[in-house]
Amino acid sequence: MQWTLNYEETWVHRLNPAFKLVFFLLLFLLLLFIHNPNIITNITVVPLLLLLFSTGHQKKVLLILMLPFLLLFFSSASSMMFFGQGSTTWWKWGLIHITEESFYRGLHIGFRALNFALLGLLFALTTRPVYLFYSLIQQLKVPPRFAYSFMAAVRILPVMLEEFQQLRAALLIRGVKKKKGYRRITQTITLYAVPLLSQSIRRAHRIAVAMEAKRFNNNKRTYYYKPTFSKFDLLFLLYTTIGFGVAFWVGDTFPYFDSTDVRQK
């Protein structure tokens, strides 16, 4: 979240945001077509290095943000490892049936999830939403009405956070008792979601009227920020291409897992 963290701007921040988004989308699709666990394990290094050394954020912050990824790795991998289909049984206990195929497939899924997570965090930590939306309008022709609404909506979030704290204090003071079971859920909705959402809806409505009062409409407009392409985009392209290339080559030449294709045959 760019509005709460302190960071130094690095070259990854200067990439064209729309290019970054499209490029990340392509990487994402490419990852879906990789079925060799050796390769995907190697690939993990590519976003990891960028994340650790080129985001300009403190290492401590990065580690905290990456902590849930371990949980994610395990939870994504586990169901396939324990319950996936396969012929070479390693271990069987009740419903749990670990086969060689399902184990590697689980591992593969875990690493793939890890890659998505790292790429996602890399994007989030190096992209200011305002630049992204300006770039989306100008490079990808996203209608300004949606893009500016998004930017305006992002502004409301910190206000809501403040209101959330006030609300919590107010409820504490009123001595609201927590209910049990499913009524706890409905209670949370009436006590927290309703006041916060209704306040935000009213605020959003007022902001929209104010925007129209500032003559925001579908007419021709100019732009304060004009994101362009730079040598950094090229650098990024080179880094990932070479990184992926090396990962593929190493994965093919020096495999460390027995399996090279995790798909069910």
């Binding site: 305002v130 500016y148 609404s149 930017m151 305006a152 992002v154 206000v159 902001i207 104010a210 925007m211």
Partner: peptide, 8 residues
């Protein structure tokens, strides 16, 4: 707090 759409 409800007339601006940009952060800066």
């Amino acid at each position: 707090d409800a007339q601006f759409c940009m952060p800066y």
